[in-house]
Simulated assay, not measured.
Amino acid sequence: MAEYNEKLEDLLDHHLIANEELEKRKQGGGIGYLINGNMCLGIYKDLLVARIGERLASSLVDRPGIRKYLPDKGLYDDFVMIEEQVYSHTKALQKFIDQSISYTGRLPAKDHGKTQHDSQ
């Protein structure tokens, strides 16, 4: 049995199938969707994880079904975790997807293959 919601994975895959800039990766007991090496969307247990920017995230965390993303490795202020009661609504899901892609697509690319030392 998967450690994350496979139904949510299918739903995200359906919404993201035409987006060629996203890379899907299993990580941390869930699934991550990355743009240029930066996590954009993810699935953790039954929660949708969305990287939407610090300003928008802080304005939404007090709403029902939305909370701060608090992984074991620390706090990520530009991420939120969204419960099924919110992402089960197609329009809400699409808004989170669009915002995540827009925000993350503007971040500098991460090069996981090289370190600063390697490029010298």
Rank of each mutant, 00 (worst) to 15 (best):
M1S: 12
A2D: 09
A2H: 07
E3S: 15
E6S: 11
K7R: 13
K7F: 10
L8I: 10
E9W: 05
E9D: 11
D10R: 15
L12F: 06
L12G: 02
L12V: 05
H14S: 15
H14G: 09
A18W: 09
N19W: 07
N19Q: 13
E20P: 07
E21T: 12
E21H: 12
E23F: 12
K24S: 07
K26R: 13
G28M: 09
G29K: 10
G30N: 03
G30K: 01
Y33N: 01
Y33K: 02
L34A: 00
L34C: 08
N36V: 01
N36D: 15
N38G: 07
M39P: 05
C40W: 04
L41R: 04
I43C: 07
Y44H: 13
K45C: 01
L47D: 02
L48E: 03
R51S: 09
G53M: 05
L56F: 07
L56W: 00
A57K: 01
S58M: 06
S58G: 01
S59I: 01
S59G: 08
V61G: 05
V61F: 05
D62A: 08
D62T: 11
R63H: 06
P64F: 03
P64H: 07
G65A: 06
G65W: 02
I66Q: 00
R67C: 12
R67K: 15
K68S: 13
K68W: 02
K68D: 11
K68H: 13
L70E: 15
D72Y: 14
K73I: 13
L75N: 10
L75R: 09
L75E: 12
Y76S: 09
D77W: 06
F79H: 06
F79E: 02
V80K: 07
E83F: 03
E83D: 15
E84P: 06
Q85E: 14
Q85W: 00
T90W: 04
T90L: 04
T90Q: 12
K91M: 04
L93E: 08
L93H: 05
L93R: 02
L93K: 01
Q94T: 14
K95W: 10
F96G: 01
F96A: 04
Q99A: 11
S100C: 09
I101S: 01
Y103N: 01
T104I: 08
T104W: 02
L107N: 05
A109F: 03
K110H: 08
D111M: 11
H112K: 11
H112A: 10
G113M: 07
G113Q: 09
G113S: 12
K114C: 06
T115R: 10
T115L: 15
Q116S: 11
H117T: 14
D118N: 10
D118V: 06
D118G: 03
S119A: 08
S119E: 13
Q120H: 08
